[in-house]
Design a protein around this nucleic acid. Structure first.
Length: 721
DNA sequence: GCGGAGACCCTTTTT
DNA sequence: GGGTCTCCGC
């Protein structure tokens, strides 16, 4: 068979991986070594060379984005579409399986997915019911505990039986949570995985069905799997063990969320006769960048071992800039960016990476003021926004009256006189009767001693929901959405309270109609299509990544975590200071420091041509001034690979000078290039040049009446217009 | 029940 | 610095 279109694109080791005999295979794929390429070509090879049907292949990823991209890439190699092939995240695949076998999995047909926010609210409600103090029983920690246990495959019943030291109250909360979810058909993210795994272990018929169907399993980012995900993979793959796992232990950065790097080391023992292939040739970065990254990661113990190399040249040294404060750091980055763009590069070839999202603000301000287009990744995603979740909650309640999370969310949004007092009564009733909140309302309406005013308001709410339901019953999804938005009166509500954010919120609400319009519902296993149900599940499972402007040419700002898997010609690694990176809290955790170091490795290996590392001696964090030292990671890079733009070890004298200058800049930081200013005698004008810093800083201002003037900032007494 | 003023907290993020 | 949550007065 003619397979040059597959093999022609690959190097020798990649070819070996792609064309290896079916069987357990672990690919250790270093950063930039063509991981995705190997994965997609492997699938193409199975289909073309072994004539495996796409329907017999199961491909698992961690994000929806990765799943989508993989599908596109495979289709473009093959030249035909593979619509029926199962490519998805652990969660979306589990969801699909549970929908198809909800009875065997002991779930109601209309079971609902709880996202992290819904789960948090539910836990708080339980704490209240159990009359536990939130100070002592922090909802976040409970949430973390429950998810952690589920991700280890442990239910409350196991804790009860196996562990005598188990905290009694914690156990009671977990138990209560499980009961409530079971009773009302609520499934949180970890439950999707756990429940599917239990379905497979308890139901041989179902398991056999999937084992027969899927003869080949492939996993991406294997280093990020947690315990239950690994078991999920094992149970579906055995006994054939045709599993193809691709990962990089050096890029495991989600340990704090349950990912088990040990899964990589255990793989070869759990799947006997595992073949291990190392992809070490890097096609992304210059020699210097690779050497520096290798040197840093080499400080970690217990690695599987890998050394990246490249056939390309050394390139420029790593440039390190020691700033005196965060503003100076920002200005340096901005200047460098402008030079880079002036040299003819695209803006989207640039990434500013940082450890914590709070660091983006200063860069955003500077980029904004200089009129440089930029885009910040991370933060709240579309379907997680409060206003969007409100609309969805109306839809959820209409679809399933027994959805307590949806009920709680919107029963009084916009305010309709059903306050905490009434809600407490409802919750109380619900607890006693085991009825959902909605049914509790119905109950209360039929009880004679319910006060008239409460009765009126509850009735109005019931009527509203019922009447919207009736009105939208036979309409298209986007029409349903549009009517719900209209009749819920959420837009006027946000208009009323919104303030500055009102406009964005209303835009988001309206954008939801478009999202509904563009949503393609897939028929389930029985060929049934339920667009609304699908849409709601999808909203929970897919956070709603990048919206429209994703492809515009702008500077990219993101946390190091979100940068994994991406590459940029020019990378700035910012805030590389002890306490911030590695983060203070991670230094205290066991294994925390090594994970931070991997994060540093991930950051450095994003750079193709040029890597800048910056740190600031003074940083404003949480409104306070902090003094820092350069990160230990910086000191782990061999000096010969570094070009210092300013000495890391500042002279004491220089330090005084610089902090003085810092103050002056901070005081005047509203004066920027392009700022509108007013002078006592020259009147209004625009700042067109700024030179120097501190007491000697000078600006050139183009005054409307007086023309161009040079002024010394500390004497001129300029005020913002 | 509503809404404004102050207290409080604060890594990383996907599903 | 800023977003969320609580408390309190109306």
């Amino acid at each position: 068979m003619e397979l040059t279109h597959i093999f022609g694109e690959l190097n020798k080791v990649q070819r070996e991986a792609v064309a290896s005999e079916p069987g357990p295979l672990l690919i250790l794929a270093g950063a930039g070594s063509g991981k995705t390429r190997v994965l997609t070509y492997r699938i193409a090879w199975l289909i073309e060379a072994l004539s495996i049907s796409p329907l017999s292949i199961l491909a698992v990823t961690f994000t929806n984005k990765a799943a989508l991209e993989m599908r596109h890439r495979i289709e473009s190699i093959l030249g035909f579409n593979i619509r029926g092939m199962w490519i998805g995240t652990f969660h979306s695949l589990s969801h699909r399986i549970l929908r198809a076998h909800h009875q065997e999995a002991n779930l109601p047909e209309a079971f609902e997915i709880l996202d992290a926010d819904d789960q948090y609210r539910l836990i708080r409600r339980i704490l209240k019911e159990l009359q536990l103090n939130e100070e002592h029983w922090q909802p976040r920690q409970i949430q973390w505990f429950i998810n952690n246990k589920k991700e280890e495959g442990i239910r409350s019943i196991h804790l009860k039986n196996d562990n005598e030291n188990m905290d009694h109250t914690l156990l009671r909360i977990y138990e209560h949570y499980e009961n409530l979810c079971q009773r009302f058909g609520l499934v949180d993210f970890s439950e999707l995985l756990l429940r599917t795994h239990e379905l497979f272990s308890n139901n041989q018929d179902v398991l056999k069905n999937y084992r027969t169907r899927f003869s080949y399993t492939l996993v991406d980012e294997f280093q990020d799997t947690n315990k239950i995900q690994y078991q999920w993979l094992k149970i579906i793959t055995e006994p054939r063990n045709h599993i193809f796992a691709v990962g990089d232990d050096d890029q495991s950065i989600y340990g704090w969320r349950g990912a088990r790097i040990e899964n990589m080391t255990n793989f070869q023992y759990d799947f006997p006769e595992t073949q291990i292939i190392r992809l070490e040739q890097n096609y992304r970065s210059t020699g210097n960048i690779l050497q520096a990254a290798n040197a840093v990661i080499d400080h970690n113990k217990g690695r599987l071992g890998k050394n990246l190399w490249t056939e390309d040249g050394d390139g420029d040294p790593i440039k390190v800039y020691a700033a005196y404060n965060d503003l100076d750091e920002g200005k340096f980055v901005l200047d460098t960016i402008h030079t880079w763009i002036a040299d003819g590069h695209r803006r989207d070839s640039i990434a500013i990476l940082y450890r914590s999202n709070a660091q983006s603000r200063i860069f955003e301000e500077l980029l904004f003021d200089s009129g440089t287009p930029y885009r910040v990744y991370g933060g709240l995603r579309f379907f997680e926004r409060a206003e969007v979740k409100d609309v969805l909650a109306y839809l959820r309640l209409i679809h399933n009256r027994n959805s307590d999370p949806a009920f709680e969310r919107i029963v009084n949004v916009p305010p309709r006189g059903i306050g905490n007092r009434t809600l407490e009564t409802l919750r109380d009733h619900s607890r006693k009767t085991n009825h959902s909140l909605w049914n509790s309302v119905i109950d209360l309406l039929s009880i004679d001693d319910t006060p008239m005013r409460i009765r009126t308001r509850l009735q109005a709410f019931v009527d509203l929901i019922d009447s919207i339901d009736k009105q939208i019953a036979s309409l298209e999804l986007h029409e349903q959405t549009s009517i719900v938005i209209d009749r819920s009166r959420l837009v006027p509500h946000y208009q009323k309270i919104g303030g500055e954010k009102a406009l964005t919120r209303i835009e988001n609400i309206e954008e939801l109609v478009n999202a509904a319009k563009n949503f393609n519902s897939e028929p389930d296993a029985d060929g049934v299509i339920n667009p609304l149900e699908d849409f709601l599940a999808n909203a929970a499972l897919e956070a709603g990544e990048s919206q429209a402007e994703a492809w515009q040419d702008c500077v990219q700002l993101m946390s190091l975590h979100s940068a994994k898997g991406l590459e940029f010609k020019l990378v700035f690694l910012c805030g590389v200071e002890e306490g911030l990176f590695p983060h203070q809290r991670s230094i205290q955790e066991s294994g925390g420091l090594e994970e931070e170091r991997r994060l540093c490795y991930v950051g450095m290996t994003r750079a193709m041509q040029q890597l800048f590392i910056t740190w600031a001696e003074i940083r404003y964090l949480h409104g306070r001034e902090n003094y820092s030292k350069p990160s230990r990671f910086l000191l782990e890079i061999p000096e010969k690979l570094i070009h210092n733009i300013r000495s890391i070890n500042m002279q004491p004298d220089a330090r005084i000078d610089r902090s003085a200058a810092t103050d002056a800049i901070t005081e005047n930081d509203e004066i920027q290039l392009g700022s509108r200013v007013v002078h006592k005698s020259f009147g209004a004008g625009t700042v067109i040049t700024i030179e120097g810093q501190g007491a000697s800083a000078r600006v050139q201002v183009n005054f409307e009446d007086a023309g161009n003037k040079w002024l010394v900032l500390s004497y001129a007494n300029l005020n913002p217009e």
